[in-house]
């Protein structure tokens, strides 16, 4: 792999897609398909979550199998806030990011002492610990999860309207993608990618490798927390299923389908996977077999994902 460099057409293309998305809720209402506004919001939220994992995995080179923990914690923070009377998203969402980010900092500080399979399994085990903690904590609903009696507000606007929630999710995703794009090109992004390529050399050059990795890991956790808080608003429930390790696996699959280390890899992956799920499930109840075979195919024959198929500027490693 090399440093991330966006294709020339990427910016105008992303801008066009954004404009099209702005018109989506209106169109869906005209065609009486308002169900798909909720579905599109789901895609946006998972795009955000997958992108946060892509930061850790694609740019930081850390194979974390516990990302669902931060995602789920974000959802729980939102639900706890809502029950506690904090219904303003401008307050609750940063709080969700903060809690998830801090927890990621803690997990990272312990896990980043290890390498390779150890790191994968330890992130997994920590996520499992969070999962069991939440399902046995009766104050937070235990197995049932913690419901939000009502969606929150965002800057005074009620998210109960599906369209408002859609636009808020779109706005936040856009902001985060802009941030990640800038970050990838900035000194921090270059350093973290260089560490991914050659850790020993960067260490020898005097870079505080551990600290760079930790910051990257925590930032990824915080963004996942934001996605979780949004998802809790969409579904009205902070469910322990969000914390399950299979959820981590699903996010990982999204990133890999989309393209590891490509800015829009997470977005593309979330879109592809959720679309497949939505439409294949209707035709073939056992569509996971197809998905599994597809994934093995990707691993064996196209390890760089969908985004790489459109990338002509990329130098081959």
């Amino acid at each position: 792999m090399a440093f991330y460099r966006p294709a020339r057409w990427q910016k105008p293309f992303a801008f066009t897609v954004l404009c099209a998305l702005l018109a989506l809720p209106g169109l869906m209402e005209i065609f009486d398909q308002s169900y798909y506004i909720g579905f599109a919001t789901r895609v946006l939220i998972f795009a955000l979550a997958a992108s946060s994992l892509n930061l850790v995995l694609g740019f930081g080179g850390m194979v974390s199998l516990g990302h669902a923990a931060f995602f789920g914690i974000g959802a729980y923070v939102a639900a706890i806030c809502q029950q506690g009377g904090i219904v303003e998203g401008l307050l609750a969402f940063p709080l969700a990011m903060g809690v998830a980010g801090l927890f990621a900092l803690l997990v990272g500080a312990l896990s980043l002492r290890t390498r390779g399979v150890y790191f994968i399994m330890i992130t997994l085990a920590f996520a499992q610990m969070v999962y069991y903690l939440f399902i046995s904590a009766r104050a937070w609903g235990g197995d049932d999860g913690l419901p939000l009696s009502e969606r929150m507000q965002f800057a005074g606007l009620s998210l109960t309207d599906d369209k408002v929630l859609f636009y808020v999710a779109l706005g936040l995703l856009t902001a985060i993608m802009l941030l990640l794009g800038r970050l990838a090109d900035a000194r921090f992004g270059r350093t973290i990618q260089a560490i991914r390529e050659n850790e020993t050399r960067m260490e020898a050059l005097g870079y505080p490798v551990f600290r760079y990795r930790l910051v990257c890991f925590a930032l990824g956790g915080a963004i996942a927390g934001l996605a979780g808080a949004l998802l809790a608003n969409l579904t009205g429930l902070a469910s322990p299923a969000l914390l399950q390790w299979t959820q981590s696996g699903t996010l990982l699959v999204m990133v890999i389908i989309g393209g590891v280390g490509y800015l829009y890899g997470g977005v593309v992956g979330a879109l592809v996977l959720l679309l497949l799920e939505e439409f294949l499930l209707g035709f073939f109840a056992h569509w996971h077999i197809v998905l599994g075979l597809l994934l093995i195919g990707i691993v064996l024959f196209a390890p760089k994902g969908v985004a790489a198929l459109f990338d002509k500027h990329r130098s081959q490693p």
């Binding site: 077999i289 075979l293 691993v299």
Partner: peptide, 26 residues
């Protein structure tokens, strides 16, 4: 898979889980 990186191994074996669960259900 032995020669691949850990990420590929995670993905391929995760895919096996999906296939195994669905096949058994089938």
């Amino acid at each position: 898979l032995y020669r691949r990186d850990h990420l590929s191994q995670v993905l391929a074996t995760f895919a096996l889980i999906l296939i195994a669960n669905e096949t058994v259900r089938l």
